[in-house]
């Protein structure tokens, strides 16, 4: 009950400050007579958005889909890689340094390669979203899987359970909080990756809208796509946050 009212309160406060920001923006654009090509007023952005809503939503849906596919792949493959890293000793000494050094390459810089390899469909966008998002999962999952307390390890040995039992009943659930906080980072990164992919080569999606509208100096259209992108980002992030609260509710009891 108190938690719900707390959530409601922060939601209302957020909406109010967002509304105030839009009002100030509108007043500044009107007051200083800024040209729409430089900075359109919120009212004209919303008009733009409303006028072509089905088209915007279809493109947003496309970006959402590539983001989600890239994200889910990053979670599944990232956790699998982390499991291999902590359970196969030679894997850690050979593969982990590779992964770390690979992570230091800016993924945006290799995006054009994916177009060469995978064409101009959804595949390169999914691949880039996946690649940007997966490292956060690997690093956090490895940390989580390794952080079993010493006495719990001893308990597992004394109980003489199978390796699978220990993994699925002790190690993996113990790593879940870390994996979920990795997911919170990676969902935002997956969205970045999907947009980068659309910038490089795409005929659809919000990234494509931004790039093509910018080419024809249609700034209200750029902002309309940005608004949708911001809303989508918040939606995705809070969905993972909700998932986290659900799956690790035992952490929030005092």
């Amino acid at each position: 009950m108190t938690r719900n009212s707390h959530v409601l309160r922060s939601l209302v406060m957020g909406l109010i400050s967002f509304g105030v920001l839009l009002l100030l923006w509108e007043a500044a654009v009107k007051g200083f007579n800024v040209r729409p090509i430089i900075m359109p007023a919120p009212s004209s952005i919303f008009r733009e958005l409303w006028g072509d809503l089905p088209w915007y939503l279809a493109n947003a849906g496309y970006t959402l889909l590539t983001t989600l596919v890239g994200f889910v792949l990053s979670v599944v493959i990232g956790v699998l890689i982390a499991v291999l890293l902590v359970s196969v000793p030679w894997f850690e000494s050979t593969i982990y340094p590779l992964i770390i050094s690979f992570n230091s390459v800016p993924k945006v810089a290799i995006a054009p390669l994916f177009v060469v390899w995978l064409g101009t469909g959804a595949e390169p966008q999914i691949a880039i979203a996946f690649l940007i998002a997966v490292f956060a999962i690997i690093v956090d999952a490895v940390h989580g899987l390794r952080s079993v307390p010493a006495d719990v390890m001893d308990l597992g040995r004394v109980l003489k359970g199978s390796r699978a039992d220990f993994f699925f009943k002790v190690r993996l659930p113990g790593a879940l909080p870390s994996i979920l906080s990795g997911m919170k980072v990676s969902i935002s990164l997956a969205l970045v990756g999907a947009i980068v992919g659309e910038f490089v080569a795409s005929q659809r999606g919000l990234g494509y809208i931004i790039l093509s509208a910018q080419g024809s100096f249609d700034t209200p259209r750029v902002f309309a796509a940005l608004f949708l992108l911001a809303a989508m980002g918040m939606l995705l992030f809070s969905t993972v946050g909700l998932l986290e609260r659900r799956l690790t509710h035992w952490r929030h009891i005092s």
């Binding site: 307390p149 006495d151 040995r157 004394v158 879940l176 035992w250």
Partner: peptide
């Protein structure tokens, strides 16, 4: 030679699983 069968162990800290 490794943990014997049929023993129980209590540790200094409880080693309960939080979840």
């Amino acid at each position: 030679n490794g943990p014997p069968d049929n023993i129980g162990m209590v540790f200094q800290r409880d080693a309960l699983l939080d979840w």
